[in-house]
């Protein structure tokens, strides 16, 4: 490892004046197994400060903070790193450890900030989907089924059995995935070092494809209005909007939010506007509700 680090260093210090990069470009391996385990425990607080503006961002930063502190001894570098990790983040609370492992390996190797961001964003969506399928739709129903069948007979052991099975799998995966992802990340980076810009570009492609898909699946907005024109009834959603394009409203609303953000409106204002629109849309007018 040491000889490889020496090879990377001159390349990075040449770019040290670029704010994208680092004042301290040492890529020494400082993260230990103990640090990784500590950060797994901290990641239990991933959603401590959950909110609609950044979702898990502050909890994510909290989870990896011991690692960042150890990697970036220079205050400027630590500040740059912390700022970028305060950006919007949301994934499955169990599988977050995979992203943590890879991102920590990248931080330790002082990778380009944009690459780290792109990797984080490209991974969070798919892992969210895999986590839902794995934990909420598979593990939980199985464990609940076993526990509840014992409990229906009034046997309190059911609860205990449920907790033991669930958490053995849960924590086994968390600690295992963290270590696995960190090692994979460390190895992959040294072989990809010449191509960080291209990797960043590739990760952005995956990221943007996923974001396009996520908007279509997770933003929920449908019109409920029926327009009476003479004897004809036109359901705004089915007869008009869906004919133009399904998911037109979710896409339109997201792009509107994007436009407003670019115009400098704060996300908090946008959240409040959204709450008002939601409630207004459900007011029972004589002609029905709008949404």
């Amino acid at each position: 490892m040491a000889s490889e680090n020496a090879a990377i260093e001159p390349e990075i210090s040449a770019q040290a004046n670029n704010p994208e990069f680092y004042e301290n470009s040492s890529t020494e391996q400082v993260i230990t197994k103990k640090d990784l385990n500590k950060m797994v425990w901290r990641s239990l607080f991933l959603q401590a400060s959950f909110n609609y503006e950044r979702m898990q961002a502050a909890g994510w930063l909290y989870s990896i903070l011991p690692g960042l502190k150890k990697i970036h001894k220079n205050k400027h570098d630590l500040s740059e790193s912390m700022k970028s990790h305060m950006e919007f983040f949301n994934t499955h609370p169990f599988l977050v450890n995979i992203i943590m492992g890879i991102v920590l390996a990248m931080e330790e190797r002082k990778q380009n900030r944009n690459t780290i961001r792109a990797i984080r964003v490209a991974m969070m969506g798919p892992l969210g989907g895999i986590g839902d399928a794995l934990f909420w739709l598979t593990l939980l129903p199985i464990c609940v089924g076993i526990g509840a069948s014992l409990g229906a007979d009034g046997n309190p052991i059911g609860a205990l059995v449920f907790l033991i099975i669930f958490n053995v799998v849960h924590f086994g995966l968390r600690f295992g995935l963290m270590r696995y992802a960190y090692n994979t990340g460390t190895n992959a980076i040294s072989s990809l070092k010449e191509n960080t810009k291209k990797v960043s570009h590739a990760a952005s492609i995956v990221g943007l494809t996923v974001v396009g898909g996520l908007i279509a699946s997770f933003v929920q907005l449908e019109a409920n209005l029926v327009i009476h024109a003479g004897k004809a009834e036109i359901a705004l959603q089915e007869d008009l909007l869906d004919k133009i394009m399904p998911n037109l409203l979710p896409l339109g609303y997201t792009l509107l939010m994007y436009y407003m953000l670019k115009r400098g409106l704060s996300p908090v204002i946008l959240i409040l506007i959204t709450v008002v629109i939601g409630i207004f849309g459900k007011i029972p007018f004589p002609f029905g509700t709008i949404l």
């Binding site: 964003v121 994007y258 939601g278 949404l291």
Partner: peptide, 20 residues
Amino acid sequence: GLGTAGGMMAAIGFAMLLKI
């Protein structure tokens, strides 16, 4: 209405990602 707003909220998060 709060439920509907909850369904729309994700748009703001994605818009922030797009902005970056």
